[in-house]
Write a protein that binds this DNA or RNA. Structure first.
Length: 1105
RNA sequence: GGGCCUGUAGCUCAGAUGGUUAGAGCGCAUCCCUGAUAAGGAUGAGGCCGGAGGUUCAAGUCCUCCCAGGCCCA
């Protein structure tokens, strides 16, 4: 090669096709050099590098609908094994929020994944229609204050409004569902208000009734006075709010026995409104109580609480067990309420009394406490209730008549105070149950209710839970297991209107005679009328009565409707109308393989689904359950109107794209924990993942198009014959395919997302960047490799980001596949792991290469030598270097722009410092606690000597006077050159660069600088990548002149110059002299001192571009 | 009061089976690279990995207790 200089990658690149015989581009005549012929048209059209993702998504939505892609994906899998998914119906009340996208993204991604894997995954939407939330919304619309308003308005009309409200809200859910690309069949959606659905629910209730598990009972239960209905425990569970109540200590003078007139019982309560109905005071039989004298009086309190309640300054007058106080009478706190004839207001014994707080004496008001009721019943005490079902004190009461129960506290406390029976009042902050819908504080209130005896099947529920796969696992025996273990009977009935009517008819002559009805057909039989067309809702069903031959009395329906949670828990069979209809379909799809909701459903749908399934079929209805954390606003708080931090879902998707929002939900942070969603986070997803992926596809199509590449006519070399980088990309794809599949099988979208994002980054920023020149050249191996990788990657990403992947599929993948390939990625199969492509060694080697490149760049930075300046050589110390293929070593040299690479350990020992460190993992595993002594000995040893011995395999260190041999892998050797080099090392690797510059190297660097300037000018003046140019230059600096002259052919090749005109000013782009023939495009290029250049497009040389 | 979750850089979060220089992104500063990219890379500032004990040759990682926040329940 004579005196010519090597240039690293710069000149190592072969000339482009058509330019390997450049003729005489230096003639100064300006005549055009040869150019390549226009490429034949291939099947690919270039995708634009810029893309408006939300706009693209809308087009794709239209295409999916026009081409019926979802329906075809179901048809295509018909007859294959079923993977059953149950849609938990959203309550069709209120508009959907951004958090609804979360669960719906998960409900979409796994069915898509399983479908691609070859399962048949029917997906049927559902809407939860009944319940208090709907009633409340309608009440608000109508300006109602409570049940009397509804009764006046008419139940039929009211329920019609409820139905209309549900239909209205379903539309907005449907819109969200469509926009986010959640594939679920809404045309066959189940509605819990449909008569067929209700009949199924009835059927199941009849099964439960027949088993004796559906019973009426009078119990104290949480009750919302505003809504006028009892709440089930899982409803109460949703409504705790913190509030501050008065907490009062009240003195009740003893009126019988030894201490009559001499001491006061001291009680403590946070519900002063229950004091007017005080009926008794409970003490624990086995706790010691004392009579204690203080300045304020003489009191009876539990001994462990004396100091806490009365202070240090007390005199104990007596000490006795709680048992001894039984039936001692006292003066009740208020005389407001009439008590029936008979004994009351004395001390009773109860085991549930504790000495954790209060006084150890517990005020009893049986109408308002479940335990109070049980205890007082035991003594035959009356149940006195001065509060009406709307939560107000009866109007005729003095002092508090007509007051709302909680609002009466102040007046009652004041009255106690004025009479001197208030011992102490404190503000007490605690969480208190509120109505989860209207936020009214609940009362515990004695009322008749229908219950399902779930506590009777608790063991069965625990056993079913044992079989269930929970994600995350800790829910199973944590939050959910606790709930099951503390199971109480399901308070099923509601004294409301818009709900599934409880299908029980009672004989009005003998209330013990009950009939449960399982269908309209049964009801028709009982009444002798055809009721098949009856709307089973109230009030129509209430009018249906019947008599039975030989029985007195008429059967009338009990008035209650049921908890809407029971409706949704019945969906496995009720969605089919089973067993009255579609019995086989139901049986074929029970239980479900997969359900998913947010964590608030633990005691909601997750429970009711399992409970109904176990009650009716003795088997839970789901196998795998995903339990998601909540989505929070950017400020880390719940989104709420009140805080003004709401992100509306549709505008959010219209701004960033549904794919971005989906990706965030699936892979941004752990799905199990609460996550903050915001614009910043989403635009990062767009930039880092979606656009990088898109641009890789766009890059591919650009060169597939430019080169007219057609895999059918341009066979690529066999994979094993392709360049290492191609094989690396394919090997990485194979590994990623396997790992992503494993992650999704385990419902781990976060892990899968991390793998995919990492691969997208590797592909774009290593494979494509390193391979660009081969794409410019239309190398079939490179094009085929990238096409194959995009194919696999697009399939892997399709369940996550269904929009952009389908666009890439149809435009960058499909044109290169055979004729029978599906026209949507969502009809394609899940990729199999290409075992032949697997090459873990190569993957590890490329990882090493990239580490070395990083270190080399770091070394350049610290020496302030820019990358465009070629350097003579780099030396490397790295385990595994020796076995690195020359092709990969060339990669490092190219990236670092060095002409030569050598191994440091081969260098002269005098130039190198060595340091040694023990690999603790290796040595620790073998030698255990000796490892520290070995490390010390290694540090103390002469590093050079020990290294030599270590490399020879004979290294030994002395520990406690005994020799310990070191094995291969025990030490990490770090070598560092001493002088005249710039060095970077880390993780046992070292890269050193020779900084000595020769004039030749400097000139090579200058040329590269010039190339960059021209490329920038090409880009900024709007030239296409394949446009050819002419170049004019003048330079004052001798080095630059010489550099440009010396390297003219390389320069011309790099910038696609068909002609170079030294010492010539060229056309002035600002003047009118730029010939039309040059396409009107010309640009000045300024940069290096004293160098002036102009470029202009070579006229008429290329068709089209 | 009980159960569960969380606590790692200014912010958002990674950190299998314990292994000795704790990482990434965003933001900031200074550079570099760029024929696809809204990208990419390097360097710097920024960490008693919530705290205290313990187990271990070795703890961000395992155990116990405590603190703070969140959720769920009494």
């Amino acid at each position: 090669m004579g005196g010519s200089l090597p240039y690293g990658c710069f000149c190592a690149v072969p000339a482009r096709p058509g330019e390997d015989a450049p003729g005489d581009p230096f003639g100064g005549s300006g005549r055009m050099g040869p150019v390549s012929a226009p490429a034949p048209a291939g099947p690919f059209a270039a995708l634009p590098p810029q893309v408006d993702l939300p706009a693209m998504e809308k087009q794709i939505l239209q295409r999916w609908e026009a081409d019926k892609v979802f329906a075809r994906s179901l048809e295509a899998s018909a007859g294959k094994p079923q993977w059953v998914f149950y849609e938990g119906p959203p309550t069709a009340n209120g508009r959907p929020g951004t958090h609804h996208i979360e669960a719906r993204a998960f409900k979409d991604v796994f069915p898509r994944f399983k479908t691609m894997q070859g399962w048949h995954v029917p997906r049927r939407a559902g809407w939860d229609c009944h319940g208090l939330p709907v009633e409340i919304a309608v009440e608000q619309e109508l300006g109602f204050a409570g049940k009397p308003d509804i009764e006046r308005y008419g139940i039929a009309e009211f329920n019609a409004r409820c139905r209309e409200s549900v239909e209205r809200h379903v539309d907005s859910f449907a819109e969200l569902t469509r926009r986010m690309g959640y594939w679920v069949d809404m045309s066959t959606a189940y509605w819990t208000m449909d008569p067929a659905y209700i009949e199924s629910v009835w059927w199941s209730l009849k099964q439960i009734f027949d088993k004796g598990l559906l019973v009426e009972d009078h119990r104290v239960a949480p009750y919302c006075p505003r809504c006028g209905t009892g709440l089930s425990d899982h409803e109460v569970a949703q409504g705790y709010e913190t509030l501050t109540d008065p907490s009062v200590y009240v003195r009740l003078p003893v009126t019988s026995g030894e201490w009559a007139g001499k001491a006061d019982l001291l009680i403590w309560t946070t519900t002063p409104w229950t004091l007017p109905s005080n009926t008794a005071v409970a003490v624990h039989p086995d706790v010691t109580y004392v009579v204690a004298r203080t300045d304020a009086g003489t009191f009876v309190v539990a001994e462990p609480l004396v100091t806490a309640v009365l202070g240090e300054d007390v005199e104990i007058l007596a000490r006795t067990s709680g048992r001894d106080w039984e039936r001692v009478h006292y003066q009740r706190p208020f005389e407001l309420v009439e008590f029936p004839e008979g004994d009351a207001h004395y001390v009773v014994l109860a085991d549930y009394v504790t000495t954790d707080d209060g006084t150890g004496l517990v005020h009893q008001s049986p109408a308002f406490g479940a335990e109070d009721l049980a205890v007082c019943r035991g003594y035959g005490l009356p149940v006195v209730n001065p509060i009406d079902p709307t939560g107000h004190f009866l109007p005729e009461l003095p002092l508090v008549g007509g007051h709302f129960f909680k609002a009466a506290d102040a007046a009652l406390v004041e009255d106690l105070q004025s009479r001197g029976v208030l011992f102490r009042e404190l503000r007490y902050e605690h969480s208190y149950p509120h109505c989860w819908r209207c936020h009214t504080p609940l009362m515990y209130y004695a009322q008749p209710s229908w219950y399902i005896r779930t506590s009777a099947i608790k063991d069965r529920l625990l056993a079913e839970n044992e079989k269930t796969h929970w994600h995350p696992e800790n829910i199973q025996w944590g939050r959910y297991g606790d709930w099951l273990n503390n199971n109480v009977d399901w308070a099923l009935s509601r004294d409301r209107y818009w709900g599934t009517p409880l299908p029980i008819w009672r004989n009005d002559a003998d209330p013990s005679k009950l009939i449960a009805v399982g269908s309209l057909a049964e009801l028709s039989e009982l009444t002798g009328r055809d009721l098949a067309g009856l709307d089973p809702h109230r009030p129509f069903i209430d009018d249906v009565t019947f008599t039975r031959p030989g029985e007195e009395g008429t059967y009338r329906r009990v008035r209650q409707v049921i908890d809407a949670w029971y409706d949704s828990g019945s969906m496995p069979f009720a969605q089919w109308g089973a067993p009255h209809r579609n019995k086989e379909k139901f049986e074929a799809s029970y239980p479900a393989q997969f359900i998913c909701e947010a964590i608030d459903q633990t005691r909601g749908w997750f429970y009711t689904l399992m409970a109904v399934g176990t009650l009716v079929f003795d088997e839970s209805s789901y196998e795998n359950v995903l339990c998601l954390g909540h989505i929070l606003a950017e400020d880390g708080r719940k989104m709420s109107k009140h805080l003004g931090n709401i992100l509306e879902p549709i505008p959010l998707m219209d701004r960033h794209g549904a794919d971005a929002v989906r990706w965030f939900m699936l892979a941004g942070g752990s799905p199990w924990s609460a996550r903050r969603v915001g614009h910043e986070t989403l635009s990062e997803v767009v930039r880092k993942v979606l656009l990088t992926y898109w641009n890789t596809a766009s890059f591919f199509t650009l060169y597939a198009d430019t080169n007219g590449w057609d895999p059918a006519s341009t066979p690529a070399p066999a994979r094993a014959e392709r360049p290492l980088l191609d094989r690396w990309a394919l090997a990485t794809l194979a590994a990623v395919t396997e790992d992503v599949t494993t992650a999704l099988e385990d419902f781990d979208t976060q892990g899968a997302g991390r793998l995919l994002a990492g691969f997208v980054d590797d592909l774009s920023n290593w494979y494509v960047r390193r391979s660009r020149r081969r794409f410019w050249d239309g190398d079939p191996a490179a094009l085929a490799t990238l096409h194959e990788v995009l194919d696999g990657l697009t399939r892997l990403m399709a369940p996550f980001t269904p929009f952009v992947t389908d666009e890439v599929w149809t435009r960058a993948v499909l044109p290169g596949l055979g004729g029978d390939a599906p026209d949507s990625v969502h009809l394609a199969s899940w990729p199999a792991v290409d075992e032949d492509a697997r090459d873990d060694e190569l993957v590890a080697q490329v990882t090493l290469v990239r580490r070395l490149v990083e270190l080399g760049r770091s070394a350049r930075t610290s020496a302030k030598v820019r990358t465009r300046q070629p350097l003579a050589r780099a030396v490397v110390a790295a385990p595994g270097w020796a076995s690195l293929p020359a092709e990969l070593i060339a990669e490092v040299a190219d990236e670092l722009n060095v002409l030569d690479m050598a191994e440091l350990s081969g260098a002269d020992g005098a130039l190198v410092d060595v340091s040694l460190k023990v690999d603790f993992r290796a040595v620790g595993r073998r030698l255990g606690k000796q490892v520290q002594a070995v490390a010390k000995a290694v540090a103390a040893a002469d590093a050079a000597e020990l290294t030599a011995a270590y490399r020879a395999g004979t290294a030994t260190v002395q520990v406690d006077g005994a020799p310990v041999p070191l094995e291969d892998g025990d030490l990490i050797v770090t070598e560092t050159p001493r002088e005249g080099w710039t060095v970077a090392s880390g993780g046992g690797l070292t890269v050193a660069l020779d900084l000595a510059l020769t004039p030749e190297l400097e000139r090579a660097g200058l040329v590269r600088e010039v190339v960059r300037l021209i490329q920038e000018a090409r880009k900024s003046s709007g030239l296409e990548v394949s446009d050819r140019i002419e170049l004019w230059w003048t330079a004052e600096d001798e080095q630059i002149r010489r550099a440009l002259t010396e390297h003219e052919s390389q320069l011309a090749a790099e910038v696609l110059a068909t002609a170079v005109h030294p010492d010539s000013e060229g056309p002035d782009p600002r003047s009118a002299t730029v010939p039309e023939a040059l396409g009107g495009r010309a640009a000045r290029v300024d940069g290096l001192p004293g160098l002036r250049m102009s470029i202009a497009r070579t006229g008429g040389s290329l068709a089209g571009r």
